[in-house]
Design a protein around this nucleic acid. Structure first.
Length: 122
RNA sequence: UGAGCAGACUAUGCGGUAGCGGAAACGUUAUAGUUUACGAGGAAAGUCCGUGCAUCACAGAGCAGGGUAGCUGCUAACGGCAGCCGAGGGCGACCUUAGGGCAAGUGCAACAGAGAUAUACUGCCGCUUUUAUGGCGGUGAUGGUGGAAAGGCGAGGUAAGAGCUCACCAGAGCGCUGGAGACAGCGCUGCUAUGUAAACCCUAUCCGAUGUAACGCCUAUUGGUGCUUGUUAUCUCAACGUCUGCUCGGCGGAUAACAAGUAAUGGCGGCUUGAGCUUACUGGCGACGGUAAGACUAGAUAAAUUACCGCACUCGACAGAACACGGCUUAUCGGUCUGGUCACAAC
RNA sequence: GCGGAUAUGGCGGAAUUGGCAGACGCGUAUGGUUCAGGUCCAUAUGUUCGCAAGAACAUGCAGGUUCAAGUCCUGUUAUCCGCA
């Protein structure tokens, strides 16, 4: 991945859930927060509720694929965590990629701008 | 042809495009990049057992605690497997089986019933006496209760009865024969001994603890903290710590101050060449063993096998390695093969 | 990776050494009390079959031991928790 590192630390996850903004949908929940670095950091969560190990792995793969496909259009300098939901196992990858390109990108950009405005005011 | 039994194998296939993981080669000061081959399972799962490996402790003994339970073998080991024995089921192929001991001791057996591990309500019989009831004695055949009533059933016997005697059957002990053994067969003795050990327990046998986040190596920096070593001071010879829960016993004197070293964090190793795999021959009824040849075939650290397209068909189940291996158990769409059995029909 | 606990009516929650399971409380339904409601009192309340009497099945699920299992043993499913 081009501008992206892997978000690894439990502290960062917790901070995101507390202070970040989020968009929920049927398949996933996206949390976003600016990190003040020249690259993005991506974390993926697939909890026990999603399904068995095969399901969880598939969810993670789909999310990584979708992120890779639309990475070019993303803003830079964000922490992003995507939480998988149970419905993601039963759909094709096309559907999820399409969803991310159509709605997810929009939402992320919106949220990113809203953070920007806040920072300028301060 | 139908039904049924046992065992083995397999786990959609092929092609294209893009992508992921570590490895090798090329390349670069170094990144980047390019190419090549490789890249989840029969259960990878549950974690129910057993091993290896690593560390800790080693001075051992006893008790406690836990596992196993027909015999003989196989194995690194096992609670696994194979063959056999006993018991039970099936017409049969075959299947199931925690299958030592209650004839060492203790406990428990509700309700019902006279009585539940030893007695006597109704009976039956004998003797006695106020002759219509009581007393004494014998009896466990009769009645009902119960899961179970003192081996079963028949005959003899008796006042009535009773293994009291006898035949057959079941059980126990002893002897002989066969077998490696579990056990089987035969004979004799004897007269009986309720069930429960998946109740405590007894017998035989096995078991140290912790798990690769173990553990080893390298490394940044002040202070505090833990550990180790050295020096000094104080206290004393029985407390404290440790060795498995306890006891005996063993080992370390203890506390404070100062100095030096070390650990944490991160990285690397551990990490995959193995009680392994394939093929051939061979020993054994079999589990399994032996010999020879060949190949190297996942090793990640938020964690890699995917996505899409096309074709084919029977339309694709359960499901994803995290130190490794041997089993067991559970989940599973189907398909293929092999060997027995029964029924019907034909020859 | 390692280890532990729990499961009983609609809900909470009993049932001691195996011995009549559905105690007790809440809830629900019906009736009474009241002008009306609440409170209070009484009765009923697992499922199936049955006119009824009653019978069968019921302690997460599947087996086993026992005369008898919620309780003992084995396997399994779900939920919850702990350690690192």
């Amino acid at each position: 991945m081009l501008y992206t590192e892997i978000l690894n630390d439990n502290k960062d996850f917790l901070a995101l859930y507390k202070k970040g903004r989020y968009v929920a949908s049927k398949y996933s929940v996206i949390y976003v927060r600016p990190n003040g670095r020249p690259f993005n950091r991506l974390g993926i969560t697939a909890g026990k509720k999603v399904g068995n190990a095969v399901c969880r792995n598939r969810a993670k793969r789909l999310i990584r694929l979708a992120y890779r496909n639309s990475e070019v259009n993303m803003p830079v300098g964000m922490d992003i965590v995507i939480v998988a939901r149970a419905a993601i196992c039963s759909i094709k990858s096309d559907e999820y990629c399409g969803y991310i390109e159509k709605y997810g990108l929009n939402d992320i950009n919106k949220m990113f701008r809203s953070f920007d405005v806040k920072n300028k005011r301060i």
